[in-house]
Design a protein around this nucleic acid. Structure first.
Lengths: 211, 211
DNA sequence: CCCCGCATTATCCATTTGGCTAATAGTAGA
DNA sequence: TCTACTATTAGCCAAATGGATAATGCGGGG
């Protein structure tokens, strides 16, 4: 028996074999959904999107060859009508913000219950954004602090590495005073008392990914 | 057609609905495997293990009400013949070490390919330990540094919070000198140049879990 | 054109940190 | 019992940090 609507074409991008299997199983509960493509890395995700033109894409944030955010940005640039749902374990506000800014149509945690996942996909297919309340709340807490400047984003990872102001100055080619100024600004913006707490906060918020 | 062996009874413990679905799908490829129980938190994992007595249990490391390591410890204490495979995204040596020390029969990353997962389950069923080479390597790198003492384990989280030696001393009721001594020892054991790097290393190695 | 934010440099100063060394006491194991 | 490790305390010292303040130059927006 054919469905009224043509089946919704889905692509799944995740490097976890077992999770992909879970997604396919959950999605197969709906006979109007069809997983027409899969990818386990960013490069093939971009390539297969162009080839298969899925209606909605489920994308992991971390992939072996880069981030799902970069893949999302590339796909959305090339295909402005792309509907991409991020599906990840990372709940830091920075990751959420960057994903949406890259063009994602939604941001779900991998702990999402099946029915909510299906609802999010339907919403994305209709061209709507689906953001669960918990995720939305994370984003709003963020507003408290200002955006980081480009320089601050360069300095932050170096602080996390345990480098001193002098080391940082040497690497970025400015004086120790400048390094100090940027670190002071980072402390203020992220609400940290010292650089030790700065690391904890930056990791928690997804500004830095350790590994 | 009945299999020669009685079906191997499996329990799956993970709070991610989609991942559980994936596990069940992958495991159902083997008709001599049967998922007889599921749990999505530590407490019900312990309770259901006792009730269903599975042959092999697949256990996530992080659960809503605690850690899979604690659940593993409880189950292995009550049932010394339990075979529990940790299945997690955390690859820090401390998590691996603690899981094995708690009695786990193996430690797999969630990116495990299907066939390797099945092999690990078979090994666990035979009473063997299955540790993938990459995980084993992590454990061996660990040997470089000594174990942390109890005091050091108390001090570390406070350092990560951004507290000063004086603050730490106040909380743990000893002098600033003592705090300093423990921090110095932590820096040496974890190979960090300062407390900033200490945080990064502690998080990376799974000694501390943020959030 | 003026204001604002940013990057950069700079000074002063109190506090904190990290390295080195050392003593005492308790405890567990050889 | 002797040893090793740990916890605790302590002092000295150079270096790094964080707070407060300020000046300069640059670019964008009103």
């Amino acid at each position: 028996m054919p469905t009224f609507d043509p089946p919704l074409k889905l692509m799944v991008v995740d490097d976890h074999f077992v999770f992909r299997a879970g997604l396919k199983t959950v999605l197969s509960l709906r006979n109007d959904f069809a997983v027409i493509a899969e990818a386990d890395n960013a490069a093939s995700a971009v390539e297969r999107y162009a080839r298969h033109q899925p209606d909605v894409t489920l994308m992991d944030l971390r992939l072996p060859d880069g981030t799902g955010i970069e893949a999302t940005r590339q796909i959305c640039t090339a295909h402005p009508d792309a509907r991409i749902l991020m599906l990840t374990t990372y709940d830091g506000d920075e990751d959420i913000h960057r994903a949406l800014e890259a063009g994602a149509a939604g941001y779900l945690l991998k702990s999402v219950p099946g029915p909510e996942l299906l609802r999010a996909i339907e919403a994305a297919a209709r061209g709507e954004r689906y953001i669960p309340p918990a995720v939305q709340q994370r984003l709003e807490e963020r507003a408290t602090f200002g955006e980081l400047t480009d320089r601050e984003r360069e300095v932050l990872p170096l602080v996390v590495k345990g480098l001193t102001n002098r080391d940082i100055a040497g690497i970025l080619n400015f004086t120790e005073f400048t390094a100090k100024a940027h670190v002071r600004s980072l402390l203020a913006k992220l609400g940290a008392a010292d650089r030790t707490e700065l690391v904890a906060i930056a990791v928690q918020r997804g500004l830095i990914h350790l590994d």
